[in-house]
Lab assay of single mutants.
Amino acid sequence: KELVLALYDYQEKSPREVTMKKGDILTLLNSTNKDWWKVEVADRQGFVPAAYVKKL
């Protein structure tokens, strides 16, 4: 499975999103959308801005 690194803190703004902290390592589930990537963090799945994460 592919992992991404959170480059910035992100606070979810809708139930479809997830909160992450800078430095978090997240499991990447889907990166087909260039703006929003689906990730899993702490047993929750949701979207984060693609610009806020980097593939490892």
Rank of each mutant, 00 (worst) to 15 (best):
T19S: 15
L56Y: 09
I25H: 05
Y52I: 09
K21M: 10
R16H: 13
W36L: 03
L3R: 11
V4Y: 07
S14W: 06
T19I: 02
L7G: 02
K21S: 10
E40A: 11
T27R: 12
V41G: 14
D9W: 04
L29H: 06
Y52F: 13
G23S: 03
Y8E: 10
K54M: 15
S31R: 07
Q45I: 13
S31Y: 08
E12T: 08
F47Y: 15
F47K: 03
L7K: 05
W37S: 03
L29I: 14
V41D: 13
M20F: 10
K21F: 10
S31H: 09
L7N: 03
V41Y: 12
E40Q: 15
K1I: 12
V48A: 03
L29W: 06
L56P: 03
V53I: 08
S14N: 12
A42G: 15
K22V: 07
K54E: 15
K54Y: 10
D9L: 03
D9R: 03
V4G: 12
D43F: 09
K54H: 12
R44D: 04
L5E: 11
L5Y: 10
L28K: 01
D35S: 12
L28Q: 00
W37E: 01
K55Q: 09
S14A: 09
I25D: 00
V18H: 03
E17S: 06
V48K: 00
A50F: 02
K1Q: 11
D9Q: 03
R16A: 12
K55I: 14
K22P: 03
P15G: 09
F47A: 03
K54D: 09
N30T: 08
L56G: 03
F47C: 12
S31D: 15
W36P: 00
D43K: 09
L29Y: 03
K21A: 09
W36A: 02
L3V: 08
E12K: 13
S31I: 06
K21D: 04
L7C: 09
Y8A: 11
I25F: 06
L29T: 05
K34R: 12
G46R: 02
S31V: 07
K38H: 11
K13T: 12
P49V: 02
E17I: 04
L29E: 03
A42W: 11
T27H: 10
E12I: 06
A51G: 12
A6W: 01
S31L: 05
L3H: 09
T19F: 04
W37P: 01
A6I: 03
D43W: 08
R16S: 14
K55G: 06
Q45R: 11
E2L: 11
L29S: 03
E17W: 03
Y52H: 09
K13V: 08
T32L: 10
L5P: 00
Q11K: 13
Y52Q: 07
T32Y: 09
K13Q: 15
T32E: 15
E2P: 11
L29M: 08
V48P: 01
G46F: 08
F47N: 04
E17G: 11
L29P: 00
